[in-house]
Design a protein around this nucleic acid. Structure first.
Lengths: 269, 269
DNA sequence: GAATACCATTCGATAATGTCGAATGATGGT
DNA sequence: ACCATCATTCGACATTATCGAATGGTATTC
């Protein structure tokens, strides 16, 4: 891990939280001397990853991060494959449809099909949700051993609402259940008044590449059986397009037999 | 400029162009030894700025860049202020409305209000357009001396279509014209079949913080006088909300008298 | 099926590089 | 008019990144 690069990325992360910070504030939050931070900040400035407001001298994220995010979405095969199915699913069920991928202990929404009622809705692409507090996250965790480990072992499950599952053992049990059906649910665990129903998406490697799911107001919960079936069909279809041979995928990646797995490249560390 | 941070950002840029690269390819494009690149890449990997495909070993941009982009949009006051006006303008004119900010010699779209005809349209937030080939870019360049310098002096004006203005002198003349009205136009200079009309947006500092404009098919060009008036009204209103005292802003920031300008912080380098 | 070419990754010695404390200059507040 | 604050600059030091060579594994070729 290269120190200065790590520090640069931590600066971006800090800037992500506190949207507008002075050099001193950044230095303080990273526990570094201001002059050290200044050197890194100057470099980020040149690449437009951050900008400096000309009146206050404070720093904000810059336009370059936006174009990076845009390119990321373009490269995501998952996104282009899921789009038509999400549209169909939203029309069929009347709910908004989200698609997400795992990021550390959270999930990131990479596609958002608004509720088809014609109302104005915020685009939710790019938002981050704790994996353990969302149906999308549970669907992924159940089939991604690596991601689940961090949360189930030492991780602290932060409570979002009173309903959030904060006990690792309870979460583990839920994931066992998810493995059987490929479908996960969540009732007001992330935000009050909202429930989620999500299904894993897998590809030719059999892992969990992400999840798609719908967001329903608590007043519509539980959803009709047909809705669940539609979601399952959509997830299976997307997974098949991504090369998956079975759905839901086999629970957890093989452990002991992992040595026999074909990899076309050396193990990625 | 810190070397390793600069290299890390260049890696992201390279990954932005070639969407899927092996370590060797990255090293080659940056003219660096693979082991050097590997160290940086490993750090980017930890922060999820990039991900490594487990089958091919190749690298792609990661989900963290998406969340950064999302936060950038949230911090942009310009965006929230422009949104209602853009919606109104789109409905009033029937055209799609884009809002952009400057990034080096390009502009980046930070808001996109689709054509109000109900058709499915790609979200264009995050796309990058050469400043000299777009109405949005010209509107900004005319009032942003710093940005214009780079292009008018040594810069090469890359041709996008046969109509693109590639002569610096000709571009300069256009910008002089834009300064009089605050409005810039473009006819098939970026993509064939599309024309643009854009207006500067300024804030309390009097500079160009961005531009908003509409995209019209060539068949609808030139647009009605009422459309231009609506755009002007919208731009003036947004600028006023951002604290601008006059619109269009005074052409180019003052040169000789610049010393007298009040700045609340030391000059940002 | 054996051998080769390729590639990501690891390791360690070297010196180039980033780091940090102190100084600067300019600003806004008292 | 003074002081406190803040971004920025500078230079000496040693920590740190860099790079070449070696490793282990996979695809490809004959």
């Amino acid at each position: 891990m290269i120190q200065s690069v790590d520090r640069a990325l931590r600066i971006l992360t800090v800037l992500q939280g506190g949207h507008r910070l002075s050099l001193g504030e950044i230095a303080q939050r990273l526990d570094l001397p201001p002059s050290t931070v200044h050197g890194i900040v100057r470099t980020l400035l040149v690449h437009r990853m951050i900008v400096q407001e000309h009146d206050s001298g404070q720093y904000r994220l810059g336009p370059a991060v936006l174009t990076l995010g845009n390119v990321y979405l373009d490269t995501l095969e998952l996104r282009s494959r899921v789009a038509p199915w999400a549209e169909d699913l939203a029309r069929r069920t009347g709910f908004a449809v989200r698609t997400a991928v795992a990021m550390a202990e959270d999930v990131v929404v990479v596609h958002h099909e608004p509720r088809p009622d014609g109302s104005r809705q915020m685009p939710e692409v790019g938002i981050v949700i704790p994996a353990h507090a969302s149906a999308l996250g549970k669907a992924i965790l159940a089939f991604d051993e690596e991601a689940a480990e961090g949360l189930l072992d030492g991780g602290i499950l932060r409570s979002m609402t009173g309903e959030t599952v904060t006990d690792a053992r309870a979460l583990g049990k839920q994931l066992d259940q998810v493995r059987l059906t490929g479908i996960a649910e969540e009732v007001e665990e992330a935000v009050l008044g909202e429930c989620g129903l999500a299904a894993v998406l897998s590809d030719r490697l059999g892992g969990a590449v992400g999840a798609m799911g719908l967001v329903a107001p608590t007043s519509d919960w539980p959803v009709a059986a047909g809705v669940v079936a539609s979601l399952r069909t959509a997830a299976r279809s997307v997974s098949r397009e991504l090369g998956a041979t079975s759905w839901p995928p086999v629970g957890h990646a093989p452990r002991a037999s992992e040595m026999g797995t074909r990899r076309r490249r050396p193990r990625p560390a």
